[in-house]
């Protein structure tokens, strides 16, 4: 501290102040200074108890594991830094490798824009996972459900992984349908623009090339994806406009889709019809009940409301 400390005893006027004042004024100024002694803005008293309470609050904050001396207390300073640095690296590492997940609830649809500008339209109940370094290390996404991809051109190939299948592209538009709950674990890929490579994740050499207007499917019982077949891409992607197109689709898979799309439970209380197929086409948005009406008419079934949705029976 400064040499003035000696001069300023018990609230006398600081000597720097006096030096700057006219000597004739000194007496008055000292008097004013003295008179202001009790004009302290906040006169509040702080009791010793309050001080101790405040101190123990501070103790708890600077020593999270209060009570016993913390283990950290005996570790030398540099070791603590080391631990902190290692922890920081580990957390950063984990952070970057924890995947990001985007999910669409039942009854809704959503479009996701990935960091590289790739657009993913996701059907109801679909989940997409990708790592935080997406775009820097690779462009791999993991799909459960159905999505339409409009892939931006970029250095790394864009890869969709689903139910053990891989779809690899550079920049194009295509639809992938691959529900994890699907009994066949089937993945269906349909291309609307450009080309994609389609292969079992573990057998890249068994790849096929799909071109615009072609579709193929693969499931883990097949060594390679089925031969490409021409499809009407608008039918495949009808879901994007809330429409439905079912072509020779099994009843059970149609019901699952309706459950997701309308966020309703549909019980099938009839044996032996799950795998029977159905073709239906709805050019615009429809009520769930009119779809059920049609299904029941065609299959000779009936349905009734339940608390959470519908039950189909004979």
């Amino acid at each position: 501290m400064t040499q003035t400390g000696k001069n300023q005893k018990n609230g006398a006027v600081p000597k720097e102040v006096l030096e700057q004042l006219n000597e004739n004024d000194h007496t008055d100024m000292i008097s004013v200074w003295k008179k202001s002694e009790y004009a302290r803005p906040s006169q509040m008293e702080i009791s010793p108890k309050e001080i101790e309470n405040a101190l123990s609050k501070v103790h708890r904050r600077i020593e999270p594991h209060s009570g016993k001396k913390s283990i950290v207390g005996n570790i030398p300073q540099y070791a603590r830094y080391l631990v902190a640095v290692v922890a920081l690296i580990a957390v950063t590492f984990l952070f970057f490798f924890l995947p990001r997940t985007a999910s669409v609830p039942y009854g809704e649809m959503a479009t996701l824009e990935l960091p590289d500008g790739t657009l993913v339209e996701m059907n109801s109940g679909t989940t997409l996972r990708y790592n935080r370094l997406y775009r820097f290390t690779d462009r791999t996404v993991e799909l459960n459900g159905e999505a339409y991809f409009n892939v931006a051109s970029h250095g790394h190939p864009f890869i969709v992984e689903a139910n053990g299948a891989s779809i690899e592209v550079t920049g194009t538009e295509f639809n992938v349908r691959s529900w994890r709950g699907d009994q066949q674990m089937e993945t269906t890929v349909s291309v609307s623009e450009g080309e994609v490579l389609f292969y079992p994740k573990k057998l890249k050499e068994n790849q096929i090339t799909l071109r615009a207007g072609e579709s193929s499917r693969w499931n883990p019982r097949l060594t390679e994806p089925a031969n490409p077949e021409p499809v009407t891409i608008e039918d495949i992607t009808a879901w994007r406009n809330q429409r439905f197109v079912f072509r020779d689709q099994t009843l059970i898979s149609i019901l699952y889709e309706l459950e997701r799309r309308y966020n309703a439970t549909i019980e099938l209380d009839v044996d032996g019809v799950e795998q029977s197929t159905l073709t239906a086409y709805y050019s615009e948005q429809v009520q769930l009940e009119s779809v059920l009406d049609d299904i029941c008419t065609v299959k000779g079934l009936r349905y009734t409301r339940t608390t959470t949705g519908y039950r189909i029976f004979k």
């Binding site: 400064t2 003035t4 400390g5 300023q8 609230g11 600081p14 720097e16 302290r40």
Partner: peptide, 11 residues
């Protein structure tokens, strides 16, 4: 106030 009531030096 810092000088008068809190007794702080100028510096």
């Amino acid at each position: 106030e810092l000088s008068r009531f809190d007794g702080l030096e100028h510096d």
